[in-house]
Every structure is written in structure tokens, then in C-alpha cells.
Design a protein around this nucleic acid. Structure first.
Lengths: 109, 109
DNA sequence: CTTATTGTTTCCTAATTAAGAAACTTGTAT
DNA sequence: ATACAAGTTTCTTAATTAGGAAACAATAAG
């Protein structure tokens, strides 16, 4: 069956085939959703590790608990600074490692 | 051409100057405490290295050149998705490495 | 079962990003 | 100098985040 053959392919190949090639609109949307999903999951994971409620985390950065909920569930495209504030409040060091060719530009927030 | 010679410093030259020559320890393990305003400068450097105008970069991600200008000059707190789009358009892989106690949570764009 | 806590969702409103457009400035080339 | 391209700034309007508040669901504890 097709599904058996597809199972042997790599995840990238499957995504290429079923979602679309990189660069296509459909693929771009998929990649973006995937990424934002991971972001919310990550924030939730760290927050729960620190035993903080959404309300407590929100208070720390001047954001309502409703906003934290939306960020964690990927229901909003928050502002860049807001996302950084979240990580700062969680005392999580987030570094942006920009890989360009063979060079690395790394900076932390 | 004259314009080529008069162009601003390339990304390579910037990194050489500020981080170190290729092969040096400092260059290999670049870690520097930087502020948010570096984000705009980083985007500008990469864009110029790719010989893209602000208008061209904006077109690639559905943002006006005025917005690119504001982002590069840190005159706006853009949305998280917009910043990711910029790096994606510049073909720069940006990974978010969240360090939390003993664990590392890493996810890439 | 009742109560409290936490998280989700919805309403309205305020604040801000971004579009769209244009004017202006700066820099480069002829 | 003049023309052109690139970047900056400003304006109005549209779209969206976030505040403020409240209702609601889910869970756990008493």
C-alpha cells in the first residue's frame, strides 16, 4: 500500500510530497504553523516547570492571563517584544542563532 | 564596478572585525550579550549581504518597504511572525535555544 | 456536592502594527 | 548639476494585539 511505502520515507520527503515543496504558499503556511505551535508548547512547558499559573506569568510581564493562554495555544500572533518578555520572565535564556552559509551570528536576549 | 567597491562592508567583513577571524576561538564560539536593537542591525546586514533592497525584501514577505525600514531601525515592535518571515526570506536559519536549568530545549525555524 | 483554582473563551475598547500612498532625504551614477 | 534609486518619514485607514472584565469549563480539594 501507499502508506507502507510512505512510512519508509523521511519526514522531509513526506512533507515535500503531501504538503508541498519548500517555497510554495501551502508549504510556507505549514512551516509557520508548525513553528508557532512549538513556540507555545515550549512556553507552556517552561511555565509549568516553574510552577507558575498563566495569571502569575502574565502579571510578571504586564499581560493578562487570557493573552498567555492565547500565546500558548497559538491563537494569536503576539508582538516580538511580548514573546521575549515571556522568556525573560521564565528566566529562560533564549538565543537567536542565525545561520548564514558557513557563518554563525549568535545573540542572546 | 565602482558601486561594488563602494558598497558597505559585507557580512564577512563585519564578522571578521567584530567577532574575529575564521579559525579563532572567539569566532568559533561567538557569544555576546546584546540588546534587542541588534536585531534590526542584524537583519540589515544580512539583507545587504544578499544585495536586496528593502522594497524587495518587503515584497518577499508581503510587507511594505516602510515596515522593513522601521524594523531595521527598531522603530516598531513588529509581530513575532513578521520577524520570522524576514529571516526566512533572507534564507537565514534562526533557532531558538532555550536554556532552562539542566535542560536544553531547541527548536528551529 | 460545593468551593476554589486554573485555564479557556468572549465581549467591548484602547493601542499599535501594517497597508497604501506619498513626500522627502540620502546616496550613487551619468 | 541632474537623474535615478534606495531609504526614511509621515499621513490615513484597516487589521490585529492586548487591556479589562466577565462568563464558562475542567479539575482538584474540602
Amino acid at each position: 500500500m501507499k502508506s507502507e511505502r510512505l512510512r519508509k520515507k523521511s519526514l522531509d520527503e513526506m512533507i515535500d510530497k503531501h504538503i508541498g515543496e519548500i517555497g510554495t504558499e501551502k508549504r510556507d503556511n505549514f512551516e509557520e504553523e508548525l513553528r508557532l505551535d512549538i513556540l507555545g508548547q515550549t512556553i507552556r512547558r517552561i511555565r509549568e516547570d516553574k510552577h507558575l499559573t498563566q495569571a502569575q506569568l502574565g502579571e510578571m510581564i504586564g499581560v493578562k492571563k487570557a493573552q498567555i493562554s492565547k500565546i500558548e495555544n497559538n491563537l494569536t500572533d503576539a508582538r516580538f517584544e511580548t514573546i521575549l518578555k515571556v522568556f525573560r520572565a521564565l528566566n529562560a535564556k533564549i538565543s537567536f542563532n542565525v545561520e548564514l552559509m558557513n557563518q554563525n551570528i549568535q545573540f542572546e536576549q
